[in-house]
Design a protein around this nucleic acid. Structure first.
Lengths: 150, 150
DNA sequence: CCCAAATAGTTGTACCTACAACAGTTCACT
DNA sequence: AGTGAACTGTTGTAGGTACAACTATTTGGG
């Protein structure tokens, strides 16, 4: 459906305002549909994001700041998300003995197993109604948006 | 900057995953830059959204559910956002005597004045680095994304 | 060697999101 | 008229976001 109808508005000031609201609205839409899929696993979207990042360097562990730098949402509080993962037994957090300021965060066997189940779940997810070419264009335009000095 | 570099990743599974993450990342980026602009006015992004919706039907008042239906973030809790607006004197909430289930929410003079100041602020905001045509394409692609059954 | 600055991470507070349960009010049907 | 369903909005709880202050540790210049 068109954004205009979704937001029940009469129209937008210009194409930039529409694009701006559309990015926010679509992100919220994508996030909540994904969230619904994670629900049965007692997992939030952000926690999933961190699990995948950890798998990216497994079996090597990662520092908190490296995880933060790879997160989709930069201002999220990595410490507290890791707290949850550790509490559920999906990750381990240890102080680096060589530099006691740093943490060594890594996945547990259970964390890896969970990710494998989630991989299946994700594969069954219906694809976006875009051609590969359109998906590439979309990414390109979004990259450009972020190049503004906004 | 390209998403690949922003997220310090080696690459994506396919163009759909990249587009997906790019929508979320860009939305988060846009939101936090806007938030920074609202900060001096003691206003959050969501509160601003509701103020604008209320102005859309001013001087008529609106029901809570109509406001919700026009919000960019559908799952946000409209009651509690209105609580804040009322507490700051920007909106008024009354029970509709003809249907005591409904609320009549409307802007105060102060709310309207604040919006006028914010209009100025928004005009000074640098524009997206897109051509009008690109902005239209972006909106079109995002509308398509939401047409998936995700 | 010492101490200020830099670095890594945690904590505090206010607000927002997600989802479900709840309460009051109105409607519709018999 | 009476009652159950539907409607409108509020509240509860757990988790996430924004931003700043804080602690612990390491580093580097004098």
């Amino acid at each position: 459906m068109k954004l205009k109808d979704e937001l029940k508005t009469k129209g937008f000031q210009n194409e930039y305002q529409e694009a701006y609201l559309n990015v926010l609205f679509t992100a919220s839409w994508l996030k909540s549909t994904a969230q619904r899929r994670f629900k049965p696993y007692d997992l939030s979207h952000e926690q999933y994001n961190v699990l995948r990042i950890l798998r990216g360097s497994h079996p090597q562990c990662m520092q908190v700041k490296d995880i933060t730098g790879r997160m989709v949402d930069r201002s999220s509080n990595t410490t507290r998300i890791i707290d949850k993962l550790v509490a559920k037994g999906w990750a381990i957090r240890k102080i680096n003995p060589d530099n006691r300021r740093e943490m060594q965060v890594s996945l547990t066997r259970e964390g890896l197993d969970l990710l494998e189940v989630l991989d299946q779940e994700m594969e069954n997810m219906p694809k976006m109604a875009l051609t590969p070419e359109e998906a590439r264009t979309l990414s390109l335009l979004l990259d450009k948006v972020r190049d503004s000095e906004y």
